[in-house]
Lab assay of single mutants.
Amino acid sequence: TFVALYDYESRTETDLSFKKGERLQIVNNTEGDWWLAHSLTTGQTGYIPSNYVAP
C-alpha cells in the first residue's frame, strides 16, 4: 500500500480524490505518471498522480 503525501482533488471523472495520509492500494502502475489506485479509506477506485504518494 501507498500513503498520500498531499490532498488531491479529482479533475476528471476517472481521477480519484484523496486526502493526505490516506492509504491507497495500487491496482496498475504501468500508465506512466498516473496510476490506477483503490482507496482503502473510501473504497473508490480511480487514477492518481504517482508523485502524490509514497510507499
Score class of each variant (00 low, 15 high):
R23K: 14
E22W: 03
Y8I: 01
E13T: 11
N51D: 13
A4Y: 00
Y47E: 03
P49F: 05
I48V: 13
T30N: 11
V27P: 05
L36F: 12
D7E: 05
Y8Q: 02
G46L: 01
G32Q: 12
Q44N: 12
A54H: 09
T12R: 14
V53Q: 02
G32K: 14
Y52F: 13
T1Y: 15
S10V: 04
T12E: 13
W34G: 04
E13A: 12
L24G: 00
Y47Q: 04
T30L: 12
A4L: 05
T12S: 14
N29H: 12
N28C: 12
T12M: 11
K19A: 07
A54G: 10
Q44P: 00
N29W: 12
L24W: 02
T12Q: 11
V3L: 08
V53Y: 04
N29E: 11
L40Y: 08
T42A: 02
A54L: 08
V53T: 04
K20E: 07
G43C: 10
G46C: 02
E22V: 02
T41D: 15
L16T: 03
T45W: 12
H38S: 10
K20Y: 05
K19G: 05
E9N: 10
S50A: 14
T14W: 15
H38G: 04
A54T: 13
N29M: 15
N28K: 11
A4I: 03
S10Y: 03
K19D: 03
R11L: 12
T12D: 11
A37D: 00
S50F: 08
L24Q: 00
H38P: 00
K19E: 06
V3W: 06
Y52G: 08
V27G: 05
L16Q: 02
V3S: 04
W34V: 08
T12V: 11
T42Y: 02
G46F: 01
L36N: 02
E9D: 13
W35P: 02
S17P: 07
Y6T: 07
L40E: 09
V27C: 13
D7Y: 02
S17N: 08
S17G: 10
S17M: 05
Q44R: 14
D15S: 07
L16D: 01
L16S: 03
K19V: 10
L36K: 05
E31G: 14
E31S: 13
T45G: 05
A37S: 02
L24H: 00
V53N: 02
Y8D: 00
L24E: 00
E31D: 15
L5R: 04
A54K: 12
W35Q: 04
F2D: 01
T42L: 03
V53C: 04
T14H: 14
Q44G: 10
T41S: 12
N28Q: 11
E9K: 08
V27I: 15
A37L: 02
T14A: 12
T45Y: 10
E22R: 00
W35R: 02
T45A: 07
L40H: 07
R23S: 10
W34I: 08
W35E: 01
E9M: 10
Y8E: 01
Y47G: 02
I48F: 03
T1Q: 12
S10W: 03
Y8W: 09
E22H: 08
N29F: 15
E31I: 13
N51I: 09
L40C: 13
S50R: 12
Y8M: 03
S50Y: 07
E9R: 05
R23Q: 13
P49R: 05
Y52V: 07
H38V: 15
A37W: 01
S10D: 03
V53L: 08
L16K: 02
H38Q: 14
R23M: 15
A37V: 13
T14I: 11
F2G: 02
E31L: 14
Y6F: 13
V53F: 07
L5Q: 06
S50M: 08
L16R: 02
N51G: 12
L36T: 04
N29V: 14
A4V: 11
V27A: 07
Q44E: 13
L5W: 04
D33C: 13
E9A: 09
G21V: 00
G43E: 05
R11C: 14
K19N: 06
K20I: 06
T30F: 10
A37P: 00
W34H: 07
E9L: 08
Y52W: 08
K20V: 08
K20L: 05
D15R: 09
I26L: 07
F2W: 15
R11F: 11
V53K: 01
D33K: 09
Y6G: 06
P49S: 05
V27Y: 10
E9T: 12
Y52I: 08
E31C: 15
E13V: 10
S50C: 13
N51L: 08
Y6C: 14
D7I: 01
Y52P: 03
T30P: 10
P49C: 08
D15P: 01
F2R: 04
L5K: 06
E31T: 13
S10L: 03
D15N: 10
F18C: 05
I26W: 02
N29I: 15
P49E: 03
Q44T: 07
G21E: 03
N51M: 10
L24I: 07
N28W: 09
T1E: 15
L36E: 05
D33M: 11
Y47L: 09
K20W: 03
L40K: 06
T30C: 13
G43D: 06
H38C: 14
G46S: 01
W35G: 01
E13D: 14
T12C: 15
E31Y: 13
T12Y: 14
P49Y: 05
T30V: 11
S50D: 03
G43M: 07
D15I: 09
G32Y: 07
T1L: 15
P55I: 10
L5N: 03
S50V: 08
F18D: 00
P55W: 07
W34K: 10
T30E: 12
G32N: 11
T1R: 07
Q44A: 11
R23A: 10
W35V: 09
E31H: 14
A54I: 14
V53H: 03
T42I: 01
